[in-house]
Amino acid sequence: MNPPLLQLRQLSHRFPNGTLGLDSVSLSIEKGEFIVLAGPNGSGKTILMRHLNGLARPSSGEILLNGLSVLDNLARARRIIGLVFQEADAQIVGQTVSRDAAFGPENLKLPREEISRRVEASLQAAGLSGFENRRPHTLSGGEKRRLAAAGVLAMRPELLVFDEPFTGLDWPGSADLIEVITALHASGTAILLITHDLEKILAHAQRLILMNKGRIHADGPPSDLLEQVEELGIRRPRCPLHEMTWKR
């Protein structure tokens, strides 16, 4: 049997001040899954994300990517697991849209022709075709978020992790981003989306993971866990599950 795409075993992280950020977290993510991870502020969602491709080191436990430790081959982990951070501005390093999208493939030392192909494909997937020569800082909030996703997509990840992707986005910006995310999932990319805004995306998720105080509080189909979300201070949307989307 093939190992899961990503497996976390008894992962714990203690901050330098002694606070426990993650407490024996175990979970696995299969190829092509769509998971929403929710939890109150300070529940450990973002520090969990930073462990997935080795940006943070666990105090104990291990992370396996296709059965192999992430920490043994960080370059491989960073190619397979793409992180889209909450602050898109901090993720954009190129002086033009196409240069930014090329940053990851250039770091992978791919040939120039392949880089061009990937940049074109990723910008198209993110709905940014025609923006190639724009300065990233002139883009709207939603466009920047999609550029951040395109920059990661150009590395052809198997798992794409979004940290609070809807923060600060208006309805059209969120709807465009959801369009991109669901299209990526339909093309086979596994999605792990960290958010409080369940009403914007939960209809598309196959799994909901609830975190609290650094631990996995619950993990299962969204329909089974919706009743529990308010215990954790997350607003439960007042609509049926299939309507929990801002997709147009």
Binding site: N53, A75, R78, L83, V93, P111
Partner: peptide
Amino acid sequence: RRAELIADAMLSRSFTPQPTPLQ
């Protein structure tokens, strides 16, 4: 703080000082 965020974002995109050379 912002410098740290940029560093994280660059590392997660496999930053290397020796990327594919430009033509």
